[in-house]
Design a protein around this nucleic acid. Sequence first.
DNA 1: CGGGCATTTGAAGCTGATCAAAATCAGTGG
DNA 2: CCACTGATTTTGATCAGCTTCAAATGCCCG
Lengths: 242, 242
Amino acid sequence: MTPLERYLRRLEQRSNLTDEEREGVLALPFDLVSRAARYDLVRPGQRVEAACLVVDGMAGRFEQFGDGGRRTTALYIAGDMCDLHSVAIPTAGWGINALADATIALVPHRALKDVADRYPAVARAFWRDTVVDAAVLSKWVGVLSRLPARERIAHLLCELMVRFDVAGLRAGDRIDLALTQEQVGEMLGISAVHVQRIVRNLRSEGKITTGRGAIRIEDVVALRRMSEFDDQYLLLETHQRM
Amino acid sequence: MTPLERYLRRLEQRSNLTDEEREGVLALPFDLVSRAARYDLVRPGQRVEAACLVVDGMAGRFEQFGDGGRRTTALYIAGDMCDLHSVAIPTAGWGINALADATIALVPHRALKDVADRYPAVARAFWRDTVVDAAVLSKWVGVLSRLPARERIAHLLCELMVRFDVAGLRAGDRIDLALTQEQVGEMLGISAVHVQRIVRNLRSEGKITTGRGAIRIEDVVALRRMSEFDDQYLLLETHQRM
DNA sequence: CGGGCATTTGAAGCTGATCAAAATCAGTGG
DNA sequence: CCACTGATTTTGATCAGCTTCAAATGCCCG
């Protein structure tokens, strides 16, 4: 699957497109780049002229604080356009970082605007895409303010499982979570030490198994129940042409 | 200022519009309704056909969890269109609630789509508006995962002060925070009891004073510093016509 | 084989939750 | 105008979850 085919798949998950519109998306130009883990794709305050489509690996949106400290606030997997919103607002108030080694397709804003102008349905699909992004952020705000550490981690795992599934990326029960426990903690507001204790705990209870940078979900039902996970917020339904 | 003038003001904060486009926005039809505090304007899962523009009072976006428990994840003040995103995705995965007594203008999706179709610049302004909403959510994720209770509250106060300012709603140093301490706690993941202790503390340090449902900011500088507040995430710059 | 990063484990201490109850306040009806 | 009611704020005491600091072990890669 080419980078744009993956992205098209994501768009079509929620928006109906005609053949012509599909072609328009697939014809988007892009530059393919490889970035090592921790590379900053977009720095806060920077003016950007291309959006980052994750082709392989993982990327994250982060907020930077006064003292240079950061927090990852959103997670992007293959097929996600990390910062499609930068088309609407090109002066970044956020940052994008390669969480793991990643391949990224840089898609020029110019081209994205052109295809959106030519095909209004594509423009709406783009808008929808950023709305879904916001819906996930909203859920995370809720999760962080409501659930204790254990449940937060369970919720994250459930979310990723569903997103990998929908994107057609899942191999069995295995999730390729190429994140360090430190990174997970930083995303969920938990210290690395405590993340480790929780992981050990979940493992001892037979809910997950871990190994070589991947996590295997052994008991989805338990994870969903304990974190009150409900995928409604991922807005997975396909919508009418507006 | 009429409801739509307020909203137009918000749009023009970030997007340049022509006279004709302005007229288009101002000509939007709406139903004005009054809702008591705690009224649900939109329930999770509901299919909505109008967006909620806050005319007076406050509204909040909330996430609902398995057991019916809720968390407010975003806050809307006069001039904010709470759920403009519902135009793109009308089946709500979220909820909207009147946090305090509020007057709301219900603007039909149909009319919003029409004006967006007629004026592409308005469509982009709408997109931008939802992107700003997402930017605030992203920041909150960062704040919740990084800052301790005291600093969270300070951050919220700083954000509201800036937003009230930008919307032209601020009277002196006074912020009309018609929220109970319980509500504040529920938004920030802090128990009501602890919110009270922090408020007392901030008061004793001369940073704020409180009274009759309002908060007076006495020492902005201290609040900004302690919460590492930087308004960049509010994306206040005006952008070119795309 | 060695170096560097990630994970793992232990111990001590703090932040903030929870429970319980008193004091204050706003609104209501007599 | 005052007594009554329910909600909100305030205060105290106890306790759990999680952080921090420190150090050991394990793992991957050059």
